[in-house]
Design a binder for these strands. Structure first.
Lengths: 339, 339
DNA sequence: CTGTTAGCGCATTCAC
DNA sequence: GTGAATGCGCTAACAG
């Protein structure tokens, strides 16, 4: 009789009995944290446990230990590819450190966000990772007040421990790239002004313009949402022919860029020829568009690891750690025609 | 002193003490399942609990109750929009029934899948929902043998309780649409042959062709992966000019369609004019492409609800429940030019 | 290294 | 309806 259907409820007691030791000995032998005792009995217990198909009851264990090796991740939505990728990386980084990552989605509503956090907290997570922070967000402050371990990713409120890309550098890189290709009529479509990412990417873009002595036309610096439809609207207003038209656009994320592509198509403008375009985040789709999209790549894996570190090992002084992004030039900026 | 920082550890005992009742009374008063006792004491207890910021310790509760009101969801990857949307719907449907949904991702590797399931099981989920089933999958069988409550979504192994779209109907709808628009040279790019969805969508497509007395050219019926790059390869081989070219393509998912769009662009073929294209799943991006993509929409919300029902309330006879999809015609099939 | 003892916080008997 | 008692399965003192 091999490992058929494992008994439904093998408890530590069963393992202990079968191994002829006490429950506490069995418990110790099976403690995954301690550096694996290599005594004879311990080995025997482990073998028996395996044989019986023992699985620790996580609830009993967590109840007793007072911590759960679980962390909660809050994202606005998983159907946003960037957020999905961010979560996948967090999941991976967490697993490497023995944590299990649980997601909850909150949409854009601060109330739902609150609710989602409470749900996560109800499951006794050891800490929280939030990808939802707004600049004026109350939530991180409240978490600090309540002494709940947490870290922010991708966006920051400027205070709580945060791991994010260096958005200012990214914005600079993108616009600098366009300038280097000879453009001077450059528009910037940035994200919602309550996100640190939008603000910083715009600031970086302005730095690049300044540096090249280009005085930005304010009607070409537009704040939008981070969705495709927002990019489309922004694109429509930038590209309609009644006025002068930019020859290049920096979109503060790839969704916005997708919207601009659709708008350009509508006006018969060819991306990569009539209009140079750079996006942000380098989602997988970017490289696979008809005209591949130049984009700023953010090291999500590194951000995930940093966030977990910050959460597990909260620094005395709150820190905001920024990872450097890189520009991936593709046909949409026309860079391949010039190279 | 309003609800400042809630005390860190308010237990049932504290609530009981503050209310002048025993723990058991407090426990009963706060039992969320029973139909809310409306006695005076019960109300007082609830008020006190609220006031003290009491939160039930889910571990203690679950340990005692023997079930966790948690279910595990397994998807290949969250960065696939369809999977992300599916999970979001499952999360919602689960919450409606008092369950919390936990995800794990398994990639395409059966071994990782196994590991992910064990991880979920280790967290004592009450049941599993799998979006990963292969036709010859061992996993569902093993779950059945072990008596673990589960349901399959989107794909089925043909045996375990499943909730999915009627893929055959969807395939039929898509191709029928193309035929109705006057096409006879129709190619079908389907998904991996180990998925029930690919098989069934192809079967539906063939039905539509048969019905119209079109004998499909086998070199135009190609099986691919479900990724953009697979669609691109398939598109390249279909659209290269050395042979006759189809005038219409049914892609068994939207990613494949995206790949075909890129391939078409490469050959200077205009989607919606030179080539009609229909995708599957109707991901949000579909409607926002430069040339909006006709696609078959699957009622993920309904599938999610059905899956939870099947899992919570396992039918005596295993059931495979199929939800009817609908075709959303857009410019990519040229339908808007004819209408 | 081992076994004994004592809970973690809660839900459910069982008497009243 | 209520309270006292019991234990879910496990881990952490504490002595040996």
């Amino acid at each position: 009789m091999e490992s058929g259907a494992p008994a439904v409820n093998v408890t530590l007691r069963d393992v202990a009995a079968a191994s002829g030791v006490s429950v506490s000995t069995a418990s110790r032998a099976l403690d995954e944290r301690a550096p694996a005792t290599r005594s004879a009995t311990a080995a025997r217990v482990r073998a028996k446990a395996e044989e019986l198909g023992y699985r620790r009851n996580s609830f009993a264990s967590n109840l007793r230990r007072g911590q759960t090796q679980t962390l909660g991740v809050l994202v606005p939505r998983l159907s946003d590819t960037v957020m999905a990728l961010m979560f996948e990386e967090i999941e991976r980084a967490a697993a490497d450190r023995g944590y299990f990552a649980m997601v909850a989605t909150s949409g854009d509503d601060p109330e739902d966000e609150e609710r989602a956090v409470e749900t996560l907290l109800d499951r006794n997570v050891d800490g929280l990772i939030l990808a939802t922070a707004r600049l004026d967000d109350e939530l991180p402050r409240r978490l600090r007040d309540r002494g709940i371990a947490h870290a922010l990713v991708l966006r920051t409120d400027g205070v709580s421990p945060s791991a994010l890309g260096d958005d200012e550098a990214g914005g600079y890189l993108a616009v600098r790239h366009l300038i280097d290709l000879g453009h001077r009529d450059i528009a910037v479509v940035t994200g919602p002004s309550f996100t640190s990412s939008a603000i910083a990417r715009l600031a970086g873009a302005r730095n690049a313009l300044d540096e090249a002595n280009i005085s930005p036309r304010e009607q070409w610096m537009v704040a939008a949402g981070y969705g495709i439809e927002n990019g489309f609207s922004a694109g429509e207003s930038l590209l309609n022919t009644t006025g002068e038209r930019p020859t290049a656009v920096f979109a503060a994320n790839d969704n916005i860029a997708l919207g601009i592509i659709a708008a350009a198509h509508r006006y018969g403008i060819t991306i990569g020829e009539d209009l140079a375009l750079v996006g942000y985040n380098d989602i997988p789709l970017a490289s696979r568009l008809s005209t591949p999209l130049s984009s700023v790549r953010v090291p999500l894996d590194q951000i995930a690891r940093t966030a977990i570190d910050l959460m597990v090992n909260p620094p005395k002084e709150p820190q905001i750690r920024k990872a450097l992004p890189t520009l991936i030039p593709r046909a949409s900026s026309g860079s391949l025609n010039h190279a």
